[in-house]
Structures are given as structure tokens and as C-alpha cells.
Amino acid sequence: MRGITTDCTSCINANCFIKKHLHLEKMQDFVLEKTNYTCKKGQQFMIEGAPMQGLYFIYKGKVKVLKTGIYGKEQIVRLTTDGDTLGFRGFGTSNRYLVAASAIEDTVLCNFSNDVMHSILKSIPEFTYDMMLFYAEELNKSENRVKKIAQMNVRERVIDILLYLLKKFGHTNNLLNINLSRKEIADFAGTTDEQVTRILSSLKKEGVIKIVNKKIGLLQVDKLNNEIIEHK
């Protein structure tokens, strides 16, 4: 990964955990100890089972978080973008990354080492308290997702993911601002590429989505929402 330099003060990611606490006097010293990296599309920067190298915060870009399932099949467990935090699942417990992460597009990362993160947590109570709430929220999201996946059929899971992508990344000219391959959608939905292709083709014929140069657009969001409303 190639290193660059970013400035936390001028960062526009209001949801970044570091940015939110930049007003605290003690944080000013810690942000000077961060390291920046640029990852090319497809480059993996966190390896499942590898020793922790601190937490990553996305300055700009998109990243998929992966977990290896049975028979070595990858499962996408989370999609992230500007301001999101990565690597927290193994922090302070196993000291190893419990998931992997790779860039969906060229991505700029801010990294705070294990030692720096431990120092922040020990010296800034407000940051530590907010981190605890963050963990609780992420656990709740994870549990809700597991519940939904267990109760939905494959078509509903694909629709749920399309709506999630719209909410998370937004759209431009009615096309989602993230371009996932059919395999990536399948890895997120817990199904096969073939199933995803058939479902997307069916949704296109029904006029609820459009596909332009492999990019997906949602044309009838209300109709898609109604199809999975019982799982909300």
C-alpha cells in the first residue's frame, strides 16, 4: 500500500469516529501519529487471522469486509465507505483480524496502530464511552442481519441488499453509486452468481430496476420495499 498524507482537521467525513472527537484537546496529539495508505481496487489490506495492525478509518473510497465460510467460500459481511471504521472486530480480544477487507475501488485509509488506539482509550473517557456504544450498535446490526437472512428467501435477500446499497451509497441518475459484480452481490446475499443473475433479470423484466453497463438502478423503490416489508 502506498502512503499519502491526509489532514484530520480538514476532513469532511462527519461520521468518522476520529473526526467526531477531534474537538477533544488530547486527540490533537494522537492524530499526529496516524498513518495513511492508498489501496488500489481489489487490493486486500486486512487478512483474516493475521495479527492486528490497529484500526482503519476510510478517508475516501469503498471497502468490502469478508469472512471465510465453509469450504473456503467468502461471505461479504459488511460494505463500507467514507468515514467508516474497519478492524474493530478483533481489537482488544484476539488481537487478530477476525475478518478480511479489500478495496472495491481506489481507497484512501487512515490507520491508528494498536498502541495508539490503546493510549486513546486509556486517556480519553469520552472516546472510550462512545466506542462502547459503537460496538453495541454494530452488534445489534449484525444480529438483525442474521435474523433477516434466516427468514428471507433468496429473492427477498437480493432485494434487501439492493435497498441497502441505495441507502448506504445513494444513487446518481437513478444508478447506484457502487458497482458490485454479480458474485459480490451473491457473496453478500449468501447465494450463487446464477441465482443473482436470474433474480436481477426478473426484476428488470418487472420494471422495478434497470441495468446499464452492469450498473443497477432502482426504479420502483416503494414496490421493492413492499416486497420485504414483513421483515422490516
Rank of each mutant, 00 (worst) to 15 (best):
H231M: 07
E74N: 11
K147Y: 15
I199R: 03
F134P: 04
Q75N: 14
G190N: 07
S201N: 14
D187C: 05
Q151W: 07
I228T: 10
S181H: 08
D193F: 09
L175Q: 07
M152C: 10
N111T: 01
M117C: 10
E74R: 08
K147N: 14
A103I: 04
R145H: 14
Y37H: 13
K34N: 08
M131H: 01
Q195H: 11
T191G: 08
I104R: 03
L22W: 00
I228N: 02
F134R: 03
D222I: 03
D222E: 15
C16T: 02
L109A: 05
G42E: 05
D7P: 05
D82H: 11
A101M: 04
M52K: 02
F88N: 11
M52F: 02
H171T: 05
I47T: 11
I228V: 15
E137D: 12
A103K: 00
F30I: 03
E25R: 11
P125I: 04
D82K: 06
T81A: 13
S202F: 06
I120L: 00
V99Y: 04
F169L: 06
L55P: 06
N174Q: 13
G72R: 04
N140R: 15
N140D: 12
L162P: 12
T128Q: 09
C110L: 12
S123D: 14
